[in-house]
């Protein structure tokens, strides 16, 4: 098994507040790794460190074989990222967005256009190529944002609550995209608040107050916490902290 993400006591402090407290875990190539936790549990902070957007206070991590602190730019060449905040340019067309980001990754024009065609074809959205992003429904934008994050064929894709505010059918389609990518060997690192989505993951970690409280396959977690759903697992762990 090839390890593509590994962290060692990765920690981020903001003043006295410890957002991420010595988390240590590994993610294998092609895995769909679910990163769960309540709001403010430290998921986004951890993810931002792994993407090279935040410097760790201490501890270390490597992504795609590169150190996140010393080889930040190499890490960035190998990852895709879809943030919570929607990040396509609304005032550009779909094609213009793809050409721009493709250019930033130094892809050739023909390569960009070819991949864009392929991706839009798969999504059944070839007709929106020249539409302004602002004119598209949210679900479509989310699928486009995912495609954009995959444009430069990254080894790992980080998805920060990618399906927030999206209807159930589009969510299902979105997960089809994730499965397909994972099938092609791309590692998926995804945060979510939807427990049904957690069931789709190969392995799930649950963060509580900056610490990873549980990490295993959904099946094993259900057994461990003697409940029949991931929702139950989550409730048990989250309640544990509120009574602390």
């Amino acid at each position: 098994m090839e390890v593509v993400i590994s962290t060692d006591k990765l920690t981020k402090k903001f003043g006295d507040f410890v957002a991420t407290n010595e988390i240590t875990f590994e993610v294998a190539k092609g895995e769909i790794f679910g990163f769960l936790g309540a709001n403010g549990a430290g998921k986004t902070t951890a993810m931002r460190m792994l993407c090279g957007l935040l410097k760790p206070s201490y501890g270390s991590a490597s992504v795609a074989g590169f150190d996140i602190e010393k080889q930040t730019e190499q890490v960035k060449q190998n990852i895709g990222y879809m943030s919570q905040k929607f990040s396509l340019y609304e005032d550009l067309t779909v094609k213009e967005n793809f050409r721009f980001y493709g250019g930033v990754y130094k892809l050739k024009r023909q390569v960009i256009d070819q991949r864009l065609n392929e991706m839009l074809g798969n999504l059944g959205m070839l007709n929106v190529e020249n539409s302004l992003v602002a004119s598209l429904p949210l679900g479509w934008k989310q699928k486009l944002a995912f495609s954009l994050a995959m444009l430069h064929r990254p080894k790992i894709v980080f998805l920060d609550e990618p399906t927030g505010g999206v209807d159930p059918i589009t969510r299902r389609q979105f997960w089809d995209l994730i499965y397909e990518a994972a099938h092609n060997g791309v590692t998926i690192f995804v945060t979510t608040h939807y427990m049904d989505e957690a069931e789709y993951c190969d392995r799930v970690s649950i963060m509580v107050d900056g610490v990873i409280k549980a990490l295993d396959t959904p099946e094993n977690l259900r057994k461990q916490f003697e409940t029949d759903s991931m929702d139950g697992v989550f409730q048990l762990l989250a309640r544990g902290t509120s009574t602390k």
Binding site: G52, L53, I79
Partner: peptide, 13 residues
């Protein structure tokens, strides 16, 4: 403000 800067910051630009 739009959040697009974050998308740029994860690129090797």
């Amino acid at each position: 403000e739009l959040g697009t800067i974050e998308q740029l910051n994860v690129t090797p630009i």
